[in-house]
Structure formats: C-alpha cells, structure tokens
Design a protein around this nucleic acid. Sequence first.
DNA 1: ATATTGAACGATTGGTTGATTGTTCAAAGT
DNA 2: ACTTTGAACAATCAACCAATCGTTCAATAT
Lengths: 195, 195
Amino acid sequence: MTALDATREQIIAAGRERFAHYGYAKTTMAELARDCDMSPGNLYRFFAGKLEIAEEICLRASLRTADELAQILSGSERSATERLHDFLFMDLRATFHALEEDEKIVEMAQIVTTQRPEFHNEGLLREREVLSKILEMGVQAGEFVVADPDMTAEMIQVATMKFSYPQLFTRLSLEKLERELQGVYEIISRGIRAL
Amino acid sequence: MTALDATREQIIAAGRERFAHYGYAKTTMAELARDCDMSPGNLYRFFAGKLEIAEEICLRASLRTADELAQILSGSERSATERLHDFLFMDLRATFHALEEDEKIVEMAQIVTTQRPEFHNEGLLREREVLSKILEMGVQAGEFVVADPDMTAEMIQVATMKFSYPQLFTRLSLEKLERELQGVYEIISRGIRAL
DNA sequence: ATATTGAACGATTGGTTGATTGTTCAAAGT
DNA sequence: ACTTTGAACAATCAACCAATCGTTCAATAT
C-alpha cells in the first residue's frame, strides 16, 4: 500500500514539474510515464486519467492555502477585524503570486474547474469555513453583529469575487488590487461591525 | 447631414436585427448592405467597419440603461438607501434579462468589450456617476457617512461585480442571484450607514 | 496472482487548402 | 463634385487529413 502511495507521489511530482513548466495541454502521459520510468498504460493503475493528476495537484494547493488561512484563527491577541483583514489580503496575495510566478498553473486550474465545476466550489467552501469562524469569533468578542455567520461568509466571498478569479484581474497590478480590496474591506468591516 | 444620419439609423436598425437574430459573427457586411439596399462598400461611408456598428448598438443600450438608472435620482420622497437598493437590483435585472431574451446580444457585447476594453469601462463610469449621486444624496440627508462618494461608488461596483458580468452567472437563476445581491446589499448598506 | 507493458483504438489536435468575409479603391453613376 | 458601386485584396474561417495523444487491454514479465 505504501509503495503504491509512493508511486502516486512520484507521478504527482512529475506532473507538478511538467504542468508548471510546459503547461497541462503540452505534457503527455507518455512523458509523465517516462519521468517515472514506467509505461503510459501503467499510470492508469494510480490515477483514473490525466485530469485526475492535475486535480490532485490543485486539490493539494487548495488544501495548503486553506491551511494557511486557518492559521489566522490561532492565537488570541488579535481582533476578529484584523483577522478578517488578513484573511482577505492573504487570499488575494496567494492567488496573485500563483498567477505571477507560473502562468501555466492558471491554465491547469482553469481546465480542472471547467471539467469539474464542483472542484472550485469545494475550495470556496473550505475557505468559507475559516471565514465563518472568524465571523463567529467577532460575534463572541462583541466586535461583529452577524445573524448567520455562514451566510455572511458567503456574501463576503461574493463581494470579494474580483480578487479570487485570476481571469478578472489580469492587467491589474497588485497595488491597484490591494487598494480596491482595502476599499471593499472597509465597507464590509463597517457593515458587520457592532455599534 | 440629416440624410446621412437617417442612413446610419437604417444600418443600425438592420444591424440590431441581424446581430440579435443570427449573432455578430454570422452576419455579413453584404447582408447588412442588402438590407439597406446598398453595396457593401458604401457601408464604410457611414461606419468605419463592422465592429463600429456593433459598438454603436452597444453604446446606445448602455446609454439607455444609464438613463433608466438616472431616473432613480428623481423624486424626493424616497430615501437614498432605497435608491441604492433600486440601483443595484435594476442593474442586475437589466443585464439578466438582456442575457435571457437574446443570448446573441451577449456575444456581441463580449466581442465589443474584448476588441475595445475601454468601452466597458466607460459604461461602468456612466453608471458610477449615478451611484455617486445616490451616495451624495445619502450624505446630505444624513443617511450615509461616505468620505469620498466617487471612490465608494467604485468600491460598490467592485463588490457587486458578480452581478454585472453575465459570464460569471450563467447557470445561476435570477432568484439565487437576487438573494445573493440582497445579502451583499445589506452589508454595503450597513457599511455606509450613518450611526 | 499481480504488476507491467506496449500495441491498438478512438478522440483530439495541428496544419494546410479552399472558400468566405471584411475592407479598400478605381471606376461609374448622379 | 459628390455618391455609389462592385471587383480586387488581404485576413479570417471551415473543412479536411494526418499526426498525436489519452486510454484500454490482451499479452508478457515478475
């Protein structure tokens, strides 16, 4: 079993490298197989297909950023308002830098989300759970007035949608985006603040 | 001069019909010329090209919705908060219905905005001027606390971006969209309300 | 038995050719 | 002179074919 997992890891590593370097479309299963010293057919013992390899890579990236965002919850010295600010800006910077360092990653993400629409929703849900908890913290601390934290978290995601879709902010600099996010954050922040 | 304008109107009318019916790509300049009882070459005395015809059609539609939105400003019995609500929902319904009744219109709009990116920005600017005035009304009436209405209007447009790009809400029903917009509106509304 | 291969198959892509279309402009019409 | 035309030109599109690629599976190796 653990040997099987190790091979999966090897395939994922090869996929990450090639997808990032040459793009999803340009890398062939034969190349991935050669990287792993096996035949193309054998890859299918470890993954259902090419898309599933990309999906696994994207899933791990999504889990990693969700983990990073979840760290915002730890500690007790910072206010929920600060945490909300951190959450929104960390999210923007994460997607922006992913876009900047490897444009090929965006291609892969785009293919996965078009072929498996539920994938992106699951990622949003993972982030929303953190956001919900931030809101709940704020309610408990008397900072926020939010009747339904889960729903409000969803609304905040809708309102900050521009900063989550790389397709929407190509051409815009990080500075401009951060200025816009700051403006939106201030409205949201006041909008849920306890009086 | 007025004869020239009349011919322009005729071409625009023909363009509207064909673009809506068969789509921008599928209608040829030769067809538009035939509709107007002239030769293809003669169209170029009235418009610089095919794209400019579509641009003029889109511009007029944009001006019309801006006018409709501007009507929200008239009268004096309604609060600025209500006007803001109307503004956001009128905008959503306008774009949603345009999408629903003629999917070909979206194709045309998409081509115009990709070929002339500044076009869409100008449309946003026109709407933002109305939004700014609503905010100013609210400030004067003591309903809103907004330091820079123009900037806040821009931020509100960013926060409600999801409801302006048809590409983003295909698959979503008007009911679902209105529920989301209501949630975002409530946050924004509280976010700019005077205490 | 289980793991792996690599040839075979259908789907997709890349590239090329011919036709169509947007645009121009010299000639004809008014 | 000012309009209008329609043939000519270049750019784009559609249809086709060959090649490539993702995937499967009977055969082979371990």
